[in-house]
Design a protein around this nucleic acid. Structure first.
Lengths: 67, 67
DNA sequence: GAATTATGTAATATATATGTTACAATTAGT
DNA sequence: ACTAATTGTAACATATATATTACATAATTC
């Protein structure tokens, strides 16, 4: 599940640790989401968006795979 | 967790059951998401969006509560 | 208004998102 | 190169998203 969390995070100069603390989540969770190995919850996606000043579409939208 | 799933679903003339089947999920899951009692997974949010031809922001975005 | 269809919801079970702890690997600063 | 900071990741524990089954209510249709 690819996303743009890392890009958005670095653009607001936050480390994984800092973002995690802002959101109230673990650094590992942020790391795994950035690596596309987690399928995060909507609430967590929203919290990430709020923390990096972006919207869901900007950070988490991916086009449907045609199949 | 309020959202616009029900609006988007009815606009494409799908019943909860039909939407659930399209996505490969249970009708109850759709019902509870629409009632705001579930905190769905990103993948499920995306699948719903694909099924109703909307984007994440259109269906699931909510402004940050100021606190 | 009875019958069918659509929706709400509860109890319990299962799958999976996230936490915890720990350590390795990578990057940045000196 | 050494050190510190940042990030990747593994094993296991816990919380919670979703499934299953079942039944109740509301809305349509005849």
């Amino acid at each position: 599940m690819e996303n743009k969390v890392k890009i958005a995070r670095t653009q607001v100069n936050l480390t994984q640790q800092q973002l995690a603390e802002k959101i109230g989540v673990t650094r590992q969770t942020i790391s795994l989401i950035e690596k596309g190995k987690y399928n995060p919850t909507l609430k967590l996606c929203l919290d990430i968006c709020y923390a990096v000043n972006r919207t869901l579409d900007e950070v988490f939208w991916v086009e449907r795979e045609n199949s």
